[in-house]
Simulated assay, not measured.
Amino acid sequence: MNLPCITAARRFDPDAHRSFWLAGQRVGWIREGDVRHLARWPDVFDIEPARVALAPRFDKDVDSRSAALGTVIGALAAAGCIPGWRDEIYAIRNAFDDAPLAYIERAAARFFGTMTYAVHLNGIVKCADRAPQLWIARRSDTKATDPGMLDNVVAGGIAWGLGVEATIGKECWEEAGIGEVLAASALPGRTLHVLQSIPEGTQAEQIFVYDLVLPDDFTPHNQDGEVAEHRLARIDEVARWIAEGAMTVDASLATLDCLLRHRWIDEAVCSGIEVLYAGPAHLEWPSPPR
């Protein structure tokens, strides 16, 4: 079985990007083709051959950095350079527990290639008279990213101000109509680290994987319009969708983590996936020449 999602999760060419720096820290990647857009603000960015840095005069505090970036992000979105505006705040931080270096609109995280954080939940149905099954969602055709593709029953980015468990509870209800009490029984799997080039820019993301055993008489019901349908599928069907690339990269990896931990799939099939658990992708980024 060919699993392109494992390769895609590390499909990234640093030579096609310039590293992005804030407050003396490397925090992201900007595509070479997008650097020219930032040249409109020479007072905001120091643009060098190997990197782009926010000008030092904004380094006095988080608010100064956020305000400077916010002005640029708004103009880039108006020009069509940053699609899929979400009205949701993300913090720029290299580790989940780090203090924020700046706050930005969620849609801008891919343009600047900054670290983002997400939860993915595998909805498992176990019955005595048949093999385990998984609830799989199909994303709405109007989604800004990966429209129409198959996804985990619950998946979502972690906005600033929310922790992992709070995000699980929020997304469980919005995406599948899973109540608070049932959502609280979700159990953690492993943590995945993705670094890949995508149409919007760079996805550098840490994904917290969870499993939730759902009652066999429960049917997910989307609440926010972001899911077109839900399918209850056999393990072999889900494995085929992953191999065919019908599922998003994130969902494929989160599902494979579940299948491996429960020994519902042969480890040999997932050769190479171990590197995605090894550590944050951004720690492997090469330092730019000085």
Rank of each mutant, 00 (worst) to 15 (best):
A176R: 04
P100Q: 08
P188E: 05
R11H: 14
L260Y: 01
L134W: 02
P215V: 03
A183V: 04
H221S: 14
D13A: 10
A78I: 03
R190W: 00
I265V: 15
I178N: 03
G84I: 10
L150C: 08
D211W: 07
A228Q: 11
S19L: 13
W21Y: 13
L260N: 02
R11W: 08
H37L: 13
C258G: 02
E175G: 00
R31H: 14
V27K: 07
H37G: 00
R240K: 13
A23M: 12
S271H: 13
V72W: 00
E48L: 10
S197T: 15
V62Y: 01
D257W: 02
F45P: 06
G33S: 08
C5W: 09
F111W: 07
Q133V: 00
E165R: 14
T167A: 12
L212I: 12
W160G: 04
V52R: 00
F111D: 03
G74L: 03
H17L: 02
R36N: 06
I104A: 07
G272S: 07
S64M: 10
H230M: 12
Q25I: 02
C270I: 01
Q223M: 12
G245H: 08
A50R: 09
L276V: 07
A107D: 03
L192I: 10
S64N: 06
Q133G: 03
A50K: 01
A204S: 15
D216R: 13
D46H: 01
A228T: 03
P49A: 10
F20N: 06
D34L: 00
P4K: 12
F218P: 08
A243V: 04
G161I: 06
F45T: 04
W135Q: 03
V209P: 00
R234P: 02
R130W: 00
G179D: 14
D13L: 01
I124P: 01
S64Q: 12
L187A: 14
P289H: 13
E267R: 14
T114Y: 06
V125T: 05
R40C: 13
F208A: 14
A118C: 15
E174N: 12
D224S: 12
L214E: 02
V153L: 11
R36D: 13
A50F: 10
M115Y: 03
M247N: 08
D151I: 07
G80W: 00
D129H: 09
A239Q: 14
P215K: 05
W160F: 15
F111T: 02
E284R: 13
E180Q: 09
N94E: 08
P220H: 01
E48S: 08
M247V: 06
S64I: 03
A155R: 06
Y210A: 12
R110W: 06
G148S: 09
R110L: 10
L22P: 00
A55Y: 05
D146L: 11
A184M: 09
W264Y: 13
C5P: 00
V125E: 03
R65Y: 07
D211S: 12
I92K: 02
L256K: 04
W41C: 05
E88C: 13
A251F: 09
R31I: 01
Q25E: 15
W135N: 04
G225K: 06
P289I: 14
